[in-house]
Amino acid sequence: MATHLKAAACLWACASTADADGPARIASADLCADAYVLALADREDIAAVSWQAGQIVSGAPEWVIGLPRASGDAERLVALDPDLVVFGPSGAGRAAPFLDAAGIAHIALGWGEDWAVIESNLETLGDALGQSPRAATLVSELRDRREALRQRSDARPRRPSVFYLSVTGGAAGAETLVDAAIRTAGGINAAAEAGASGWLRADAEWAFRVDPDLIVTSYFVDGYVTRTDAGVRHSAFRRLLDGRPRLDVPAPAWSCAGPQLIDAAEQIADALDRLEPGS
C-alpha cells in the first residue's frame, strides 16, 4: 500500500514543472478526501471540494460552501481543470483514464481504519501537495494527543466497557475506526471483547449480549438520511440505552478514517472520565 501511494504522489511531483511548491488547483472528489485536503492544502489552492461538503456529515468549514463541487464524474472533474484530483480510498475508478488523457494528476488515499493509515495518508498527500512540513506537524500533533489520552487512561482505576451503536442498529467490532477511537480513549470495545470484528449489521441480540459502562452512538441526530433506524426505534436497543451513560459523537469526527478521528477519541475519553466518582 505504501509503495502504491508513493508512486501516486509522484504523479504530481514528478510530472509537473509549473509550480515547484505543489499544485495550485486541487479538487477533492469525496468526503474522505475533503478531510485530508482541508487539513493540508492552502485555502487559495483548493479549487473544488466534494459534493458532500456542507452536508451534516461533513466537517468542512463554512468558507467552502461557495466553492465548486466535485465527484467521481470524469466530465465534471475535467471541466474543473484542476492540477490534482484527490480521491478517497475508493480511488478514481472509471474517471482515471479520462483524467490521464487530460493530463490531470490524481491520487487516492490508502484504505484502512487505524492511526497508521491516517498518518501514512497525511504524509503521502503532504508530499503530493508540497506540504510535507505541515503533514509532519499534524502527524506529530496526533501522536501527542494520543499520548495524552494514554496517560489519562493510565490514571483511571479501570478500563470501562464501551459499546458503539449506530442509528441503523449496527455495531463496530475490532479493526474498525470506532474500535481504534475507543481503545485510544482508554475503553474496552464491548463488541470486540465479545469476539466481533469489522462493521456489524443491525442485530438486536447485542442489547442482551453486552453490559457496557458507556454507550457511544453516532448519526442519531446528525447523520445520513435513512429509513433504517433500528438503533433509535427497536425496543431492545431502547432498553440498552435507557438509564445508561451515553455519548453521541458528531458524525464528522468519523465519517471516514481521517485526522478528525482523534476528536472522537478525546470525546470518548471525556465521557469515560465522567464515569468515575467525583468527576
Rank of each mutant, 00 (worst) to 15 (best):
V232R: 15
W115L: 06
L125S: 03
D34N: 06
R145S: 01
A171F: 06
T124V: 15
P97T: 11
G231N: 09
H234V: 07
R25L: 10
P157W: 10
A96K: 12
A171L: 08
A264L: 01
S71H: 10
R274D: 15
A74L: 05
S218H: 14
S71C: 08
R227K: 15
G231K: 05
I262H: 04
E75T: 15
R152C: 01
R244D: 06
T3L: 15
D273T: 12
R246P: 00
H234Q: 10
A27V: 12
A8C: 00
R156S: 13
R25K: 15
R143V: 08
S90L: 13
Q55D: 13
I188N: 11
V49Q: 02
S132C: 12
S153D: 08
A257D: 12
L67Q: 04
K6C: 03
V139N: 09
G187T: 09
I107S: 03
V78P: 07
G243C: 01
A265V: 05
D21P: 10
G54Q: 10
E141C: 06
S58L: 02
I268P: 07
G198I: 12
Y36K: 01
A39F: 00
A33V: 07
L142W: 00
A33H: 05
A251P: 12
S161E: 15
L129T: 00
D114F: 10
P277G: 04
L241E: 09
I107D: 00
S255M: 11
D222V: 01
G88A: 00
D211I: 05
R156F: 08
E205F: 10
E119K: 08
G170Q: 08
A116V: 08
W12R: 09
R156Q: 06
I118R: 01
S255G: 11
R246K: 15
D154M: 13
L177S: 10
G126E: 02
W111A: 13
V37R: 02
F220I: 06
Q151V: 15
I215A: 00
P89V: 02
A172F: 06
D73A: 14
W51H: 13
Q52P: 02
L272S: 06
L99R: 00
G103R: 07
R143M: 03
E75R: 14
T3M: 13
A53L: 03
A194Q: 14
I56K: 13
L214E: 03
V232M: 10
R209I: 10
D270S: 14
L177K: 06
L5D: 07
V221F: 11
V249L: 15
W199C: 12
S120L: 07
A269Q: 03
A2Y: 10
R25D: 12
P82Q: 09
G93A: 10
P23V: 04
S16Y: 07
D179L: 06
N189E: 12
P157K: 11
A236K: 05
R146Y: 04
A92Q: 00
A29R: 00
T17N: 11
A204Q: 10
T184E: 14
D19K: 12
R156G: 08
A269P: 07
V139C: 03
L214I: 08
Q151N: 11
V216N: 00
G66L: 11
P97E: 14
T217K: 07
V162W: 02
